[in-house]
Design a protein around this nucleic acid. Structure first.
Length: 667
DNA sequence: TAGTATTTCTC
DNA sequence: AGAAATACT
């Protein structure tokens, strides 16, 4: 019981009982205090959006009910500093151990690192676990022991690792409760009055919580999965998994998903059902993208705010809030884009394909800064996920080695006929166009006046004309790109002259500010003639888009001297996109104080035995820690050309980043 | 069967 | 937009 000192199990985005290694460790160790800390201010700009908070609230209630039935309760704390709250709970309960599962977003990396340092200093035994990924980011490396820089290489490696992802664990049968009599709990508030109203409809379409997540998974595997390969391209098919919000909050373990799906695949393979087999591959790929997003975030913690390809910092984004607003409101004049944006606003949901369409339009046609779009997704998506969304937007923006090309503009009209050939999707979300014949539904601006009249469409009045013509957009994009390269060239030249400092610094400290911390949400007309479209028939998908990564990492020592940056990494990047080099090292901070520099020394396969055994340690005997102080990232992976000179600024930069305060109080 | 047109997809 | 797979003749 409580006398020997109980354990705190700090729950975050792992709101489940099954296959929860931190919880299992706590239970094994004796009495447990299950703790959830709500400290949204720590997230800076990324204070969770309305629908995301709604989900979290339901999920926590569900979890608490489950915990109660197992014999304990959920302790909730409202905080602006998780670590202090943890210490407070430690003091008031006499806990001697802390367990939690890893997170990989930039803010958590820093916060969790700090947690370990401070709590360990207080004499608390801290252990952390992998509960969110098939493999930890540091387990997956190329033959040289460096992180992969493209998704496909990363993923094929994952699928051929010498050991399987850990098998999912069963939930505890009962939990002995620690003594919380002296530990006051806070009531958490996740929504205000007006939000409550807006959220009311969500419950008709979604059921947050781990048991519902399991049902969703089962339904998917026994239903739509087999046809995933053929159906996944329709804009509104109901053939996707709907798992993404569940996965975001860790209501279901991705390893369980993986195992169940693989079992199905083996079954189908034996029956010679190749469509089913292929479907599983494709579905797993979307799981893989989610994995990769964590991988990228871990290796490049700036990836949510900086393009991984350095020259992008010279791209002359169009700073136009009216464009931005038109996009948010679904009034760009391109039906497929507008339908998507209205669905997003009304439901918090978008098919993966449509996410690509609207974000590509945002970046390539409007040329608005991708971070604005990402922020809006963050604020409005039910499955908002920083890592996945950063990967998606970077992929779309062409700022990754294997991202889309810069100069490619997707034409929403063509995409419309592709993903929504009969215009049903557009008609559902744009009632003002509902009577337009399919022939014109995706390009009303070309329709004869008589047709428009018959359909009751008045362009420029009840439906807008295209906000930007595609041809004009192409021209503007060309200009922007040449301006970018020019800037980049002169920047490079200034570096060679040693006059870099100024420029280098100023440019990368200015991720274009968000429009006065947009009330992106409520400033819209809550129109939506489509309230009852709770018909969540739409599909889901893990994340918007994505892919890719960057960087080559050498081992710390080597990379500084030999591996003279650029050149070698350059090989696999399209032509002159320079990739940064980023020395990095994980520190394995073992509780028992084992080897603390098991970094990337041993590479992938066979040699990895020592690290693989420790890395795989299920009990968390070894706790890998992302160590900001020893890692540095090239600011925007583009400019390692400045050799050593640059590396000192990397360090500075990384120190800045470590400053939690800075991170967390931006917003 | 070779050669060409068309569809599909980029993570 | 361009490559690759597929379909057609």
């Amino acid at each position: 019981m409580t006398s020997g000192g109980c354990s705190i199990v700090w729950l975050r985005r792992d709101l489940r009982l099954e296959d929860n290694p931190a919880l299992a460790a706590g239970v094994r160790a004796g009495a447990v205090i299950a703790l959830f800390i709500w400290a949204p201010e720590e997230e800076g700009h990324y204070y969770p959006g309305r629908v995301s908070r709604w989900w979290l609230k339901q999920s926590l209630e569900h979890l608490e009910t489950s915990l109660k039935s197992l014999g304990t309760s959920l302790i909730t704390k409202r905080s602006t500093d998780s670590v202090s709250s943890l210490i407070e709970v430690v003091k008031s309960t006499g806990a001697t151990q802390l367990f939690f599962n890893h997170l990989y977003d930039p803010i958590s990396l820093v916060r969790d690192h700090r947690t370990k340092e401070l709590l360990t200093a207080q004499g608390i035994a801290v252990r952390s676990f992998n509960a969110d990924l098939l493999y930890e980011p540091w387990e997956v490396n190329d033959d040289q022991g460096r992180p992969f820089t493209t998704f496909s290489d990363f993923w094929s490696r994952c699928l051929t690792m010498p050991y399987d992802p850990a098998a999912p664990m069963l939930p505890p049968k009962r939990i002995i409760s620690g003594d919380v009599s002296k530990c006051p709990l806070d009531t958490l508030t996740f929504e205000n009055e007006s939000e409550r109203g807006s959220n009311a409809l969500l419950a008709r379409a979604w059921s947050p919580g781990w048991s519902s997540a399991n049902k969703t998974l089962t339904n998917f595997i026994n239903g739509p999965l087999i046809e995933y390969s053929s159906n996944r391209r329709k804009a509104d098919s109901a053939t996707t998994s709907f798992l993404s919000p569940h996965l975001h909050f860790g209501e279901v373990s991705v390893r369980k998903v993986f195992h169940l799906v693989r079992i199905k695949q083996v079954l189908w393979a034996n029956e010679g059902n190749s469509e089913g087999e292929e479907s599983v591959n494709l579905f797993l790929e979307s799981i893989g993208l989610r994995e990769y997003s964590r991988y990228m975030s871990f290796n490049h913690p700036y990836s949510h705010e900086k393009p991984l390809l350095g020259h992008l910092k010279f791209f002359p984004w169009v700073i136009d809030e009216n464009y931005f607003k038109a996009w948010r409101q679904g009034r760009t004049g391109y039906p497929l884009v507008d339908a998507g944006m209205r669905e997003l606003w009304a439901t918090g949901w978008l098919h993966d394909r449509i996410r690509v369409v609207v974000s590509s339009f945002f970046v390539k046609v409007m040329q608005l800064p991708w971070r604005w779009g990402m922020k809006y997704f963050w604020d409005t998506l039910l499955d908002a996920d920083l890592e996945s969304d950063a990967l998606g937007w970077q992929y779309i923006s062409g700022t990754l080695p294997d991202g889309r090309e810069f100069d490619r503009i997707d034409n929403p009209q063509l995409q419309g006929y592709r993903f929504d050939p009969n215009g049903e999707y557009v008609r559902r979300w744009l009632p003002e166009l509902a009577r337009l014949p399919t022939e014109w539904i995706h390009h009303p601006w070309n329709a004869p006046e008589s047709v428009l009249q018959a359909a009751g469409v008045e362009l420029g009045s009840n439906y807008p004309l295209p906000i930007v013509g595609i041809d004009a957009a192409k021209a503007r994009l060309q200009e922007a790109l040449s301006a970018m390269w020019q800037q980049e060239a002169s920047w490079r030249a200034s570096i060679e002259n040693g006059t870099d400092e100024g420029l280098g610094d100023s440019t990368d400290t200015d991720p274009i500010a968000f429009p006065e911390d947009i009330q992106m949400e409520e400033d819209q007309e809550p129109i939506r003639n489509n309230p009852t479209a709770q018909v969540r028939r739409h599909e889901d998908q893990m994340v918007p888009s994505m892919t890719s990564s960057l960087l080559r990492v050498g081992d710390e020592e080597n990379s500084l001297d030999h591996r003279n940056s650029v050149e070698d990494s350059r090989g696999e990047v399209p032509t002159d996109l320079s990739i940064g080099r980023e020395p990095r090292r994980e520190v394995f901070n073992t509780l028992g104080r084992l080897n603390d520099t098991l970094g990337l020394r041993d590479t992938g396969d066979s040699t990895a035995e020592s690290s693989s055994s420790s890395g795989r340690e299920r009990d968390g005997g070894v706790v890998p820690v992302w160590s900001p102080s020893t890692s540095s990232y090239s600011e925007q992976f583009g400019n390692e050309e400045n050799g050593l000179g640059g590396s000192s600024s990397y360090l500075q930069r990384s120190h800045q980043m470590i400053n939690c305060r800075r991170l967390s109080q931006t917003g």
